[in-house]
Amino acid sequence: MDESRPIFLQIAEQIENDIIDGVLAEGSQIPSTNEFAAYYRINPATALKGVTRLVDDGIVVKRRGIGMFVTEGARDRLVERRRADFSAAYLRPLIIEAEKLGITIDDLAALIRAERIAS
């Protein structure tokens, strides 16, 4: 866990990542808050707060007495939201660093293509 941000946000993001990667398929059950608490060694109330956030966002639905399940269409909605954040979260810091090092936008584009081919 990263010290700088609330753990419940990190738990929510971790579940979101698993949904985006397909580890947690739509319609499948996610682990219980107590399982999250034990796995990450965190307070169960914190784990619950993370899951509740996903319930509020409609990513996960609670079925009383059974557990929590990934909703239909959850993946598309998460991908859309992450795309909207992509620029501020990844591009802007990249451009700032590139400018600091005297790398032009064209050089940067070339570097990205080269990296893509290499990987």
Binding site: A37, A38, P44
Partner: peptide, 10 residues
């Protein structure tokens, strides 16, 4: 820590 969390959950 592990036993505390497990038992506290139950």
């Amino acid at each position: 820590y592990d036993r505390l969390l497990e038992d506290y959950a139950e």
